[in-house]
Amino acid sequence: MAKTVVFDFDGVIHSYTSGFKGADIIPDPPVPGIKEALETIRKYYRVVVVSTRCHQEGGMEAIKQWMKKYGIIVDEVVVHKPPAIVYIDDRAITFDGDPSKLLSKIKKFKTWYQK
């Protein structure tokens, strides 16, 4: 079985330029180039999408329909992050082994679309 790569949905696959409008309302297009990147990655890895939307009624189905609309194919959409070799998320800080700088990194954190 292929190793798994987990992608967050909002801000990584869905451009999220309008912000959150509801679990089942996904108004924005994909991040430019993400469809092609996912196609390439799926040649080597199992691709799973996770989103907090999936915890709310209609959220998982909305994601699946949105991806179908844009022709984006993944192996699975899930509620909880499964074990993976890597997680791709727009709201993450890579831990570099030095906890002394974490508070500063958290306070200064901005997503790619907030910069």
Rank of each mutant, 00 (worst) to 15 (best):
E39N: 06
Y87V: 04
K35C: 01
I72A: 01
D24Y: 03
T52Y: 09
E39Y: 07
G33T: 13
D24C: 11
T52G: 05
V78W: 03
Y70H: 15
H80D: 12
W66H: 08
R42P: 00
A62H: 07
K64L: 14
V74P: 01
I73H: 00
F20A: 04
M60F: 13
I88G: 00
F20T: 03
W66Q: 06
V49P: 08
V47E: 00
Q65R: 09
T40H: 15
I41F: 01
V49C: 13
Y70M: 06
D75C: 14
P83T: 14
I88R: 05
R46W: 03
K21C: 08
P30M: 08
I73Y: 01
P82G: 13
A23V: 05
Q65W: 10
E36P: 02
Y87W: 11
I41K: 07
V86A: 11
K43G: 06
G58L: 10
Y45Q: 12
P27N: 13
K69D: 04
E36A: 02
V50A: 12
D24P: 15
K81L: 06
E39D: 11
M67W: 01
K69G: 07
K81R: 11
G33M: 08
K81N: 12
I34Y: 03
L38E: 02
V48W: 03
T40M: 11
K81D: 15
R91V: 06
V48E: 03
Y44C: 09
P32L: 01
F20N: 03
R91L: 14
Y45A: 10
P27W: 13
E61I: 10
A92S: 14
R91M: 12
E61H: 01
A92W: 08
G22S: 01
V79H: 11
K81Y: 15
I41N: 04
F20H: 08
I25S: 11
I72H: 00
V78K: 07
C54Y: 00
E76I: 03
V86G: 10
G59T: 05
V48G: 12
V79L: 15
